[in-house]
Amino acid sequence: MNTRKNSVVSKLYTALILIFLYMPIAVLIFYSFNNGKTTVWKGFTLKWYEQLFKDDNIMNALYNTLTIAVLASVFATLLGTAAAIGINNFKGKKRLIIQNVSNIPIISPDIVTGVSLMLLFTFLGVIFSFEMGFFTVLLAHICFCVPFVVLSVMPRIKKMDKSIYDAALDLGCNQWQAFYKVIIHELMPGISSGLLMSFTYSLDDFIITYFTRGAKFQNLSIEIYSMTHRRISPKINALSALLFLAVLAIMLLINLRDRHEEKVRAQKT
């Protein structure tokens, strides 16, 4: 009796929170079909979507965002996985220092990381005569992605049975095969969640990109920033709707994959 009442309350509460989370997004999507520039409904249109795809700035920014996210997450995953394997062999104080320094980009505010990297890049730019742009943004993104990879691979290494590497060698693998077929295979869940986290953080970042981009580089966040800051255009509503659809599709795919894997696992046992 009591639990029944509880379940009504909990459904209501969940519904309220989900409305709170999705109402703003729903409103943006609604206005993306509005044939007027203000919040007054002037009829249905798809013209903002058409304009969006014709906007070279936005398309170029999208390309930059995706390129940076792919390169940064792949490079951060390689660097971070190797680092986690090596750090695991440090003991005591040294290990504590390395891990704490590694966590600095996670715990310090984004704006401080952004500003400090801007100082570094300006300084290096004077010495080696380069200007901030695509490359410095890429480096900055790798900086805040690697710690997440280290954090997600590390627990896997700790849990791993160390003798399986020796077992692989005994069974005739050479060192490279033992590493690739056994160690990497064992660490894969950690590596892939590190990769996914890096990718999403890179896609979402605005603050660090803002400080390390120089004068010309544009990615989606920067483009959205200038769109919302100077000229409000309903194109941005269309962009939000499409981004929301993309996120939804990716989430559903991940969920389906997880369910499929669970099924396969259940069948095996």
């Binding site: 989900l18 999705y22 109402m23 703003p24 999403t200 966040s221 959205i224 509503n237 962009l239």
Partner: peptide, 24 residues
């Protein structure tokens, strides 16, 4: 499902989420 629904808005761009409230 609920956890997934909590995470979807997090994947939307930070500025778009704020801009959505400006619109609202």
């Amino acid at each position: 499902t609920v956890i997934m629904l909590m995470m979807i808005p997090m994947w939307m761009n930070f500025l778009l989420r704020i801009y959505a409230w400006v619109t609202l």
